[in-house]
Design a protein around this nucleic acid. Structure first.
Lengths: 186, 186
DNA sequence: ATAGTGTGAGAACGAGCGTTCTCTACGTTT
DNA sequence: AAACGTAGAGAACGCTCGTTCTCACACTAT
């Protein structure tokens, strides 16, 4: 089979396992069984487990970015585009595989021990903040508002993950509405 | 030496190691070396590593609760008491050992594999939300506002940890000010 | 048809984990 | 002084991890 397709299917299988159980809890043998790719081939596709972890994080970054941008692009006004982020979160939280932000989880698990993982998490969050910054600018808001909306999104993710409820998405959304509305009184 | 004191010193040593490096990255041998307590005695004090982890999380919960309440109790007005939470976060973020919320980190690392760890994290966050609920009630706010202030605090912690900056504490504080001010227009 | 190349399955390896056991040495008791 | 109980140091155990190696087998090229 085509190398690239096999590689992608390995990444998808690894992503599902790592996200569901934690990275260190999933051994290479479990990944071999889930992906149907022999250990030999796994190590021809990737030099090490850490390389797989990084590839999975890149894949997850792409999934997140695509999901958020398509949700945002369905909304018309600058304000609704900002709030669409929280609607996307609500949908995500409701999926039964939801277990928090994969980057926060990976950072908590490996950030102290793997500088590469810490850096990828940093870049992921930074890219989200930059994206929010553009949306906020379109709505006439400041960089500070963008940072605050990002903090609300982060907090909603961890709160939803740990509490096991979806409500934080809507609470964050309504908080965002208030912050956005306060643009005009500035 | 007194059993209880040894136990406490083990918990303190374990807390420092687990928080700095991650739980799974710290073996029992590293804990023996750091605490100066023999493996035999460690296993007389605790039945397993997981028991140590849970004891550490309880200890950290107490540290957090004490820190927040003393910071809050220094403030006078109900609004200032709410905002004191974010000042406490700012101080915490500035400490050079800061590496995010230990409960979020533990949840990301072990939540999927250890129901006990997941439950302790849930209880910790729930207790903070209840505490905030009481402070918000004193300020005339709703349960929803308490949840939103909690989300801001959670988001500030993860954002500060991953970005390595302290700014999220102040951004969350200013967002909290706006949300609190909007009580009056309700 | 046959020599050669590459594959997959899984055994093997060394390291490190959590946990237990051995053994030595010391303190206490009679 | 002698017998005993206890403690500490760390070796040992069984397991699992990430990674590599073996080996039988299929496919290709001449």
């Amino acid at each position: 089979m085509d190398e690239g397709k096999v590689r992608d299917s390995v990444i998808e299988a690894a992503d599902a396992l790592y996200y569901a159980r934690g990275i260190q809890a999933v051994g290479m043998d479990a990944l071999r069984e889930a992906s149907g790719v022999s250990l030999k081939r796994l190590y021809r596709l990737f030099p090490s487990k850490e390389a797989i972890v990084l590839a999975v994080l890149q894949y997850r970054h792409q999934l997140w970015t695509d999901g958020v941008t398509t949700a945002v692009d369905r909304a018309a006004s600058p304000e609704d585009r900002l709030l669409a982020v929280y609607d996307y979160l609500a949908d995500w939280f409701a999926s039964d595989s939801f277990r928090g932000c994969g980057f926060i989880n990976a950072f908590g698990e490996l950030g102290a021990v793997s500088p590469a993982v810490a850096e990828v998490a940093r870049l992921h969050k930074h890219s989200f903040q930059e994206y929010l910054g553009r949306l906020v600018a379109d709505a006439g808001g400041t960089t500070e508002l963008a940072a605050q909306l990002a903090i609300l999104a982060e907090g909603a993710q961890t709160t939803a993950a740990i509490s096991g409820t979806t409500e934080p998405a809507r609470q964050a959304r309504r908080a965002a509405e208030i912050l956005i509305a306060s643009i005009d009184s500035m």
